[in-house]
Design a protein around this nucleic acid. Structure first.
Lengths: 189, 189, 189, 189
DNA sequence: AATGAATGAGGGTTCATTCAT
DNA sequence: AATGAATGAACCCTCATTCAT
């Protein structure tokens, strides 16, 4: 994984909070700088443009989240247990993933090539990791789905959607742990 | 359902295409007016602001889509068949729903009260309609889920996610009809 | 000659005064707008960019000046008299030509193709007009130069330089009328 | 002539190339430092500001050019020959003089007092040197002009203008040696 | 009702200059 | 003496909104 300069990461953190709260267009470079405690021009010492900043920030966040998932299932045997662990992390970081998707939506008219080559590559890594776990579960006759891709979209979609509903309603009547077990049951069933 | 003036609907159509293609901030009122074939000032005869336009447009679209779903399952007995019909419509209009979500993401820093009272209300109607079908299926012992909300987020999430994946990859290797049957199987299982 | 919109010409006039006084980079669009008595955004209704404004302004000025010269020698027989008339106009508008050259200098790293196709084309017209007069004078044995181009650079260069010296020194010890007669004498000699 | 520190001259050389290629405003201190192979801050060890740098650079260049002209005509008797030698040097360094004028144009909104006292003083020296040669030629009945200043603006103007035309057209159809002889003929005639 | 010329607040970006090392 | 990271003033340009016609 790429090495990041100290201040770069600080900028990521401020930008992250502001972007996910107010959106891409309604967050100004000035605000990011102020929140980081640096001058406006300094942001441009680290990023060529606002667009580059948000792209690199997303990559940074996605890479970190993916890294965490990958590490956490190392040495685990059972595919079911793997999925459960990944799910717990997703729940803990749940808001982050939703926010990333939200910010991603806002920039999908950016230079598509960069999107494909950078951001999408990592989203894909995550997709493939989960598909791998489900595939493994199918081979071990633990999961029962006709195609691994179907199980994957079921897992990711249900998790994201549940979190979105929880987020939208603001009331916490959506029990994420219960949802996770429900998904696993369905994948097994 | 609210009555719409002729030109209002024309504006919705232009705005819809532009917003979903270029995003909220990158679409200008000028462009919308031009595409509609009217003057820039005329847009302001129908909508107080760009914000009001996009909110009303989303409501218009969601209401239409919801209406279509509701009508199409009238007179259908089997909950499984109901879900299949709703699913087919969702697939046909699939891109529309994704685009609505995308536009919604972009404006969620708008006046929250309006969001709650207007847009969310309709999203909620749809959620409730599907939850109703699943509840009905549970009572008739056709669907087997512990809570109707879990089945609902599974249905909506998996559908949306599958469409998003299909959309992102651009290749059409995601077979939506297969996904739909997969979801129904899982809800039954 | 191109038709100009009313406000376009007003902008040219303000811009002209500011550019020639303070230079291209040190004149802001805000200042031009203020001097014209219009809003900043209005300038951009007429010109796509500051660069386009200055280019069109130069073309406007050069065309006007050229037009005046061409008209004024219509019906004049003697090449000597033609040159004298052109010279008088040049002296009257002397500062304008210098200022145009000065502004031209400032923008010569602009899109060279446009430069060549637009601005240079008009400068060239003027060069050719004067060369034509000198050529005619050579044929009528009034002017005595080996090549018409030499006479042309002598006329234009001496006039410009004399005006520049007069301009630099600010004292008016350079007598332009005397210079003009001197040039004609030399061309005849 | 003022003594210059080693690095000062190196900065002059980089700045000269960049200013004449890209203009004053489009050349950054960073670029100058980089081209010189020193740090940005170092430039400010030698010059208080960008403005001071360009002024001192112009003075340095003009002094050098003037020095060369003055030396080259030492010991020459004939005023005609003197002018021919100065002309040859001007042709060799021709682009330099034009570039200096160009840069000068760009900075004439600088502190006028400094302009007058420094830059103009040297331009004036050159003017006076040439005027002196022409005056001498008039006294020896070699040159035939009514006022020495007229001959001077004819010489300088025609040379500069011919070089500018040569520069603009990019084709080399302007024969500078021929122009020089033409000027001398006219001054004699 | 319909228009589009006019507006100016606001944001991204640049770059001369400073200063701690 | 030398450096380059940090700064923020300043400017070009966009575009939602207004209003006279």
């Amino acid at each position: 994984m790429k090495e990041y300069r100290n201040k770069e990461v600080l900028i990521f953190q401020s930008a992250w909070e502001l972007f996910s709260e107010k959106g891409f267009h309604d967050t100004t470079i000035s605000e990011i700088a102020k929140k980081t405690g640096i001058g406006k021009g300094t942001v441009y010492e680290y990023f060529k443009s606002k667009e580059e900043l948000v792209q690199k920030m997303i990559i940074f966040n996605l890479e970190n989240a993916h890294e965490e998932s990958v590490c956490s299932i190392k040495g685990i045997e059972s595919p079911e247990e793997k999925l459960r662990i990944i799910g717990k992390i997703d729940i803990d970081r749940g808001m982050d993933i939703l926010k990333t998707m939200k910010i991603l939506q806002m920039i999908d008219d950016f230079d598509k090539v960069n999107m494909k080559n950078n951001v999408f590559e990592i989203l894909n890594k995550r997709f493939i990791m989960i598909e791998g776990v489900i595939q493994e579960g199918m081979e071990k006759n633990i999961f029962n789905v006709d195609k691994s891709i179907n199980g994957t979209v079921l897992y990711i979609g249900t998790m994201n959607n549940a979190m979105m509903v929880r987020n939208f309603t603001e009331e916490r009547f959506v029990d994420m742990d219960n949802i996770l077990e429900f998904i696993i049951t369905k994948l097994k069933g």
